[in-house]
Amino acid sequence: MAVAAADLLLQSVTDPSGWVIHTLNGLFRGFILFMIASGLTIIFGVLGILNLAHGEFYALGALLFVSLASYLTGLVVAPTDPASLLLFGVLVLVAILVAAAVLIPVSAVIETVLVRKIYDRDEVYQLLLTFGLLLVLIDLMKISWGPGTHRPDAVGGESLNQVVDVIPMEEWFGFSYSSYAIFSIFAGAVVFLALLWFFDRTKTGRIVRATAINREMATAIGVSSDRVFTLVFAMGGFFAGLAGAIHSGSAIAASADMGGDALVLSFVVIVVGGLGSIRGAFVGAILVGVLSRWMTWQQPALELAAPFALMVVVLLVRPEGLYGTWGEIE
């Protein structure tokens, strides 16, 4: 371990760009994870439900984006100059936002029709229901998109992220890195700030927090907890869908069963960060993302175990997580 650490230090001094790029790899992964986990953690924080079907919202966002982006970018020719590249970027952004927006009604309806009925039930039923939902959603996606993997249609012979990658990062930062990944990191940061702003500064955000802290009290002062719950569940769905849409624009292939791993890793993130905490999910996601990439870099064999080992350590040392607040959103 000490040798590995010394080795790492030496490499970071002799070759800083390697260090930076491995960290960027981790940040990209971390921000995608954050967007998935933020939804999971606010749903848990406010509704008290661990939504096992949350990964399917991420998968649905990814598949919707593949279809939408293929359609929209098919309308224009491959970008050749900055103006057409800008148009292309706008279309991709539209596809991302529309794909994520579709998740709002989908998750809202799931909440009102199914999930709402079991808030007062034993948590094992919540797990069973959301697991059943997970299976149903997987199959519905398979019926709609087919069983295999899917990527957005190529534009001018290049995949979507390769088109975006034309924007030269090397000139700005001094090293070559995927511009699409940089934009994704940026988008993740915007989501984080927007969520903080929403819960700290807006009236609706404060109402949500009040409901999370004390349901009865909030109801007594005239807050419709039904509506708050629907809103929160739809928000969770939206951010998971956003993560899926952005992620499937990068090099990954989207498939109906991509949600399982995302779900399990999101568990790790929100447990490390502290259940129900946005800041916790953020720090947890970045930690899991960056540390697991560093670990894979130094000890490739640890790739699979790294996030879970981190989770075990954090839970044993600080069981409430780094920002644990037991169900309050802060």
């Binding site: 790029i21 790899n25 992964r29 993997t149 090099a251 990954i252 292939a253 870099w297």
Partner: peptide
């Protein structure tokens, strides 16, 4: 769903030959 670390490591090492038996979605990724 992520190969970036391995890609970065290979780019840093600049080997003459890269062998990979990745298949399916792993290959495109």
């Amino acid at each position: 769903d992520d190969m970036s670390t391995h890609v970065t490591s290979v780019v840093q090492e600049e080997p003459d030959v890269l062998f990979t038996s990745c298949w399916g979605g792993d290959a495109t990724l």
